[in-house]
Amino acid sequence: MFLNQFLLFAAVLFSIGVYGVLTRRNGVLVLMSIELILNAVNINLIAFAAYNQDLSGQVFALFIIAVAAAEVGVGLAIVLLIYRNRRSIDITEQNALRG
């Protein structure tokens, strides 16, 4: 098996995730796309772990899964809060950062 087939697979998933983050209006969908990006990174780590016969990659993949769980928890809490305050989670309407 080639190393590249895994890396390219990951690259495709990553780009799709980026596309999702950039085009979706719904906050929950943006979070889902971010999960896609994180998974693509994990595939890379595990592929390199297998390539180098080294466990570190796998350990970091596990850490990323844990961090992703934390990220989803906080992210959804923020989305809920936005929804409660504005009755909408359309992120194109969230422009309070406008200078």
Binding site: M1, F2, L3, N4, L7, L8, A11, A47, A50, Y51, Q53
Partner: peptide, 11 residues
């Protein structure tokens, strides 16, 4: 990726 890992195989 193609440039750098072309032909690299997993053990």
């Amino acid at each position: 990726l193609w440039e750098f890992y072309q032909g690299e195989r997993l053990p």
